[in-house]
Write a protein that binds this DNA or RNA. Structure first.
Length: 699
DNA sequence: GAGCACTGC
């Protein structure tokens, strides 16, 4: 076996780690950093009294890399070398080298903020800049000050990003470890194409006709474009003259493809046959396809972004970064010298592409992360000034604080509440954690556990349907329950309860077009959540799914619990039509997503009030996953919204101590609701909200 | 009356 490049650097690495608390390692693909760094430090005595942690952004990586290291050291996995991922801890007292996902390490620091069991923490693949890695980077900066004498931190990064990480850690040394990639010839096209599907098609055919054997990997943005390109490519290749070139197979590859179709790319190709793999960025890092010699890079990727000023998510096609472009190109040089065809001018690469992808922390809602940091109780840390490698905007942090305040996770001074502490223990978004705690009070914990678990997996539940399939497939009427008109949360609950009644039958999932793996995941999450809840309650709670349909048909308790959890995600229907306005600082006009099962009354009107799981902008702003709630539950929440003072929430550096006085929100009593003058009611709530919106609350 | 890239606790 050829010696991995990193081993030639062993002395250098050890020397530099000895002298410095933090080191940045630029390890190119194939350098062996993920498997070797831990072993080198182990050989040099870093595991004598404590162990080495290596984080990975993905579960499969943690498992497969630890397996290899165990093998190389000749030990049984789970003993000296182990891994810890959600639902699976394969470590023991003997473990001295531990691979874990970055999320698991964050959870560990909840119970031990100084992470005393580790002598070395290696943040691997830090250039991917997952939300969790970024938080860990901030925590590490603090930890090395606290544990200067007995903690070493190693961060692996990409070429273009290393300097920045080094600056973040007071100019710590950077060590370059070359990889084992073959050279990749890069070609740019002179003009930005009108359609990258067409441009990819042309590039692919050119390769097929002119270039020697070797598979082609094409990076597209999503399922739609992939299917379009696959069918165009099939058509073109069939029309090529018989015998003019070798055979070809065309394989789509994206996340919503069923696993049995995904693995087709791993079976070796038949001889004299070229494979075209048309993929999303799943092939950039998550899946490695062997045999690729040519890469066609569209230069685009789909990215989910959160806008803190509107509270809305959108899924946008954006330009990739230089780091990403290089990563894609590198996929052509794994087995021999390759070529990468970039469907954009080199000027665009140099002058327009960002060096690195905008980190997730600047593209997500931070409510969960802020709550997590608050719960760590770091004495010297003010969340708004937390030392992030790339700080999120203050708008985004304030948005998180407001959300946390409305659901009682922090008080008006921005300090974490007891409720908030409990919420941080749960591996859920704050809204769902809050729902669980409220549900426990209302006696519907079992149902809420199910809803929370179902929502954690929601996008991977329904079997992927593509447009082309839809046309072919007859619309089979679904036998699944419909939420009894109350909305999507209730439907998710009903689906799971039906599955439970079949004793978690796999065929039942298939018959109902539900992804088996998704449903099994829900089962695991539900179990984990109920265990955590029981542990926190220090006793047994009612988490069993009742076989009897004991509750009335209105799911009142559960909907009330959801209303508390989603107090920051409330919307009110507008008068005489089915548009909604959201409550809160940033009132938005939105609609119920057409996929929702929420039903209208006999006059065609939707419920007056709903909570929503998320706002997503596609062709329009939509509320996804909504649940009908009652107006009287809304009143206290509005009062709370009205009393919010953002400058106090954010730690109040310029505390004027002057609480803005507002008249109490004057909502009708329950009695008024029975005989409504709806317009009047609406206008009063509207007025209260307008007053609220009109106030300018600045820092 | 729409459409969904990829992860993870």
């Amino acid at each position: 076996m050829a010696i991995l490049p990193i081993l030639q650097f062993e002395e250098k690495i050890v020397e530099i780690v000895e002298k410095n608390p933090v080191v940045v390692i630029i390890g190119e693909t194939g350098s062996g950093k993920s498997t070797q760094l831990s072993q080198i430090l182990h050989r040099r005595g870093y595991t004598k009294s404590r162990c080495i942690a290596i984080t990975q952004p993905r579960r499969v990586a943690a498992v497969s890399v630890s397996r290899r290291v165990a093998q190389e050291l000749g030990v049984r996995l789970g003993e000296e070398v182990g891994y810890a991922i959600r639902f699976e801890d394969r470590t023991s007292e003997k473990t001295i080298i531990k691979y874990l996902t970055d999320g698991v390490l964050l959870r560990e620091s909840l119970s031990d903020p100084e992470l005393r069991q580790y002598s070395v923490i290696i943040l691997d693949e830090a250039h991917e800049r997952s939300l969790n890695t970024d938080i860990l980077l901030g925590l590490m900066k603090r930890l090395i000050k606290l544990r200067q004498s007995n903690l070493k931190v190693l961060i692996t990064s990409a070429t273009l990003d290393g300097e920045k990480v080094s600056r973040f850690f007071s100019n710590c040394p950077i060590l370059n470890v070359p990889g084992k990639l073959y050279p990749v010839e890069i070609q740019h096209i002179p003009e930005t194409p009108k359609s990258y599907v067409e441009a990819s098609l042309k590039a692919a055919i050119d390769i097929h006709v002119r270039e020697p054997e070797g598979d082609v990997l094409i990076f597209m943005t999503g399922q739609d474009d992939i299917e379009k390109l696959v069918s165009r490519l099939e058509e073109r290749i069939q029309n090529l003259e018989e015998g003019s070139c070798m055979d070809a197979v065309i394989l789509p590859l994206h996340g919503s493809l069923p696993p049995e179709l995904q693995i087709r790319v791993f079976s070796p190709p038949s001889p004299n046959c070229r494979r075209f793999i048309v993929a999303t960025n799943i092939a950039e890092t998550s899946l490695t396809v062997d045999g690729v010699v040519y890469v066609i890079d569209s230069g685009f990727v789909k990215q989910r972004q959160y806008n803190p000023s509107t509270g809305m998510y959108s899924l946008d096609v954006v330009q990739i970064s230089k780091v990403q472009a290089n990563q894609r190109a590198g996929r052509a040089g794994r087995t021999r010298p390759g070529k990468c065809y970039r469907l954009y001018p080199s000027m665009v690469y140099h002058d327009i592409f960002l060096d690195a992808t905008v980190p997730e922390i600047q593209r997500s809602s931070l409510a969960g992360s802020v709550l997590y940091l608050k719960s760590l109780d770091l004495p010297d840390i003010d969340i708004l000034n937390f030392d992030f490698l790339d700080p999120p905007s203050s708008e985004s942090l304030e948005d998180a604080l407001k959300q946390l305040y409305i659901i009682d996770a922090i008080d008006e001074d921005g300090s974490i509440t007891n409720l908030g502490r409990t919420m941080a223990e749960l591996p859920l978004e704050p809204s769902l954690s809050r729902t669980l705690l409220e549900a426990n009070e209302c006696g519907c914990l079992s149902q809420a556990l199910t809803v929370a678990a179902m929502l954690s997996a929601e996008t991977s539940l329904l079997l992927g349907q593509s447009k082309s399939n839809d046309k072919k497939r007859k619309q089979v009427p679904s036998n699944l329950p419909n939420g009894s008109g109350w909305g999507d949360h209730i439907q998710l609950l009903q689906i799971y309860e039906l599955w439970h009644q079949t004793d978690y039958n796999i065929d039942w999932c298939k018959e109902n077009n539900l992804k088996v793996r998704g449903m099994m995941f829900v089962k695991d999450v539900r179990k984990q959540l109920s265990q955590i809840m029981q542990k926190m309650a220090k006793g047994s709670l009612d988490v069993k799914i009742s076989k009897r349909w004991k509750e009335g048909p209105d799911y009142r308790a559960l909907r009330k619990a959801l209303c508390s959890g989603y107090a920051n995600q409330l919307a009110e229907r507008m008068i005489r039509h089915n548009g909604f306005r959201t409550f809160g600082f940033k009132s938005q006009l939105v609609q119920v997503h057409p996929s929702s099962v929420l039903t209208a009354d006999e006059d065609g009107m939707l419920p007056n009030y709903v909570v929503y799981h998320e706002l997503i902008v596609t062709t329009r702003p939509y509320m996804r996953n909504v649940c009908a709630i009652e107006m009287q539950w809304v009143r206290p929440i509005l009062a709370k919204l009205d009393n919010m003072n953002v400058s106090k929430l954010s730690g109040g550096t310029n505390q004027s101590n002057e609480k803005i006085q507002v008249a109490t929100v004057d909502l009708p009593k329950d009695a008024d609701i029975a005989k409504p003058s709806i317009d009047d009611t609406d206008s009063r709530i509207l007025a209260a909200r307008e007053r609220f919106l009109a106030r300018k609350i600045n820092k």
